[in-house]
Amino acid sequence: MVHQGDAPLVVAFPHTGTTIPLEIEQTLRSPWLALKDTDWWVDTLYAFARDLGATTIRTGMSRTVIDVNRDPAGVSLYPGQITTGLCPAETFDGEPFYHPGEEPDAAEIARRRETWFDPYHAALAGEIARLRRRHARVVLYDAHSIRGHVPRLFPGDLPDLNVGTNSGTTCATALAEAMMAACQRSSYTHILDGRFKGGWTTRHYGRPREGVHAVQMELAMRTYLPEPPVTAWGNWPADYDPARAAPLQRLLTEILEAAIAFAKEPA
């Protein structure tokens, strides 16, 4: 799903999808577990981005079916740390998705990649190329969220805002500094290149010398919805909370405006 804008900014939503084809759902232990780690309501949170002239791109397919923000070659983004793969087999908490023996094999993973991963990235690459024909610089902003407390992935509580640039390799320093300056003016906790340094999308497309500057924003979900103990559909996902989200949206607007301003500066 693509919305085309004219500003030099692409906002991508790789993990908001909830669609699971029936033939895949039948192999899963629990549809709820399969959707547990969705980036809930992130596309709703960033609905204002279109008013800024941003291009947005979203896949409706669940990350459990195929994760379009993972290396298609299966290489870990965080060697030595727990992470999930191209077709993940378990939740962030380590709960298995599939009935025993029903996990996708190499042929099934290749089918899912061809059916859903490749078209998503063809669309994303196409939009970046379209905007690069108009602008000397383009910013790709990969929008994510995660529960703020996932002990298996990180100790303690995650900062509210987690900006990832793969240690400064995927965008110009000036862009990262502008984004972090906005964070510093807010009351939200924040970090640059902490536990989350940017996924495959950020690392693959971020080529500052070629005019494409990529960043990932990983939000702790508590910034826009309540985070109860996640035990069942009865209490998760929590509803989007517009009142809680409003101050965050003001900050995110400032961040995206800073990204556009950076992109429009003389290269």
Rank of each mutant, 00 (worst) to 15 (best):
Y205I: 10
F154Y: 13
P159G: 07
R130L: 02
D142I: 00
S167H: 11
K197Y: 02
G198L: 09
D239N: 11
P151R: 03
A136N: 09
E227T: 09
T165W: 11
E177L: 12
C171I: 13
L153G: 04
A176C: 04
L131M: 06
N166F: 12
D239W: 12
A182C: 05
A174R: 14
A174P: 08
A261S: 04
L225C: 06
V212F: 06
P208Q: 09
W233P: 01
A136I: 00
N235A: 14
P208R: 02
M179T: 08
T189P: 13
A136G: 15
V212M: 14
W236C: 11
Y141C: 10
Y205G: 13
A129V: 09
L131P: 10
V230D: 05
S145V: 08
T231K: 11
P159Q: 10
A214P: 09
R137M: 05
G148I: 09
P226W: 09
R134A: 11
T253A: 07
M217F: 11
P151T: 02
E254K: 06
G148A: 11
A181T: 15
I260R: 02
S186E: 05
K264D: 14
E257H: 01
R134K: 15
A172Y: 05
S186F: 11
A258C: 07
L252V: 10
W200R: 04
R147T: 13
I191W: 07
E257Q: 15
G148L: 04
A245R: 03
S186R: 08
L140S: 05
A258V: 06
L140V: 10
S187H: 15
E210A: 11
A258E: 14
L131V: 00
R134T: 15
A143D: 06
N162H: 08
L161I: 15
A176E: 08
G156T: 04
G168V: 07
H213Q: 06
R250W: 11
I128C: 12
G126P: 03
W236E: 01
E257A: 14
V139K: 00
P208K: 04
M217P: 07
V230T: 10
R132W: 03
A243G: 11
L225D: 05
G198R: 13
F196W: 08
G198D: 10
S145Q: 03
R130G: 06
H135C: 04
A243R: 08
F262S: 14
M179P: 03
G199K: 01
P247V: 01
G211Y: 07
R185A: 12
S145L: 12
G194V: 09
D241T: 11
P237L: 11
F154G: 06
L256R: 02
A214K: 05
V215P: 04
A232Y: 00
R222A: 03
E257D: 12
G234F: 12
Y188Q: 13
E227A: 12
A246N: 10
M221D: 12
G198F: 02
H135A: 07
K197D: 07
R147P: 05
I191M: 13
A136Q: 13
P242E: 07
A174W: 12
A178P: 01
L251S: 01
A214W: 00
V215M: 05
R185M: 01
A182G: 02
I146H: 08
A232T: 14
T201N: 04
Q216R: 01
M179K: 04
A182T: 03
Q216E: 14
A258I: 05
G211K: 03
V163W: 04
L251Q: 03
L161G: 01
G234R: 15
R195V: 13
M217A: 13
T169K: 09
G199V: 06
R244Y: 06
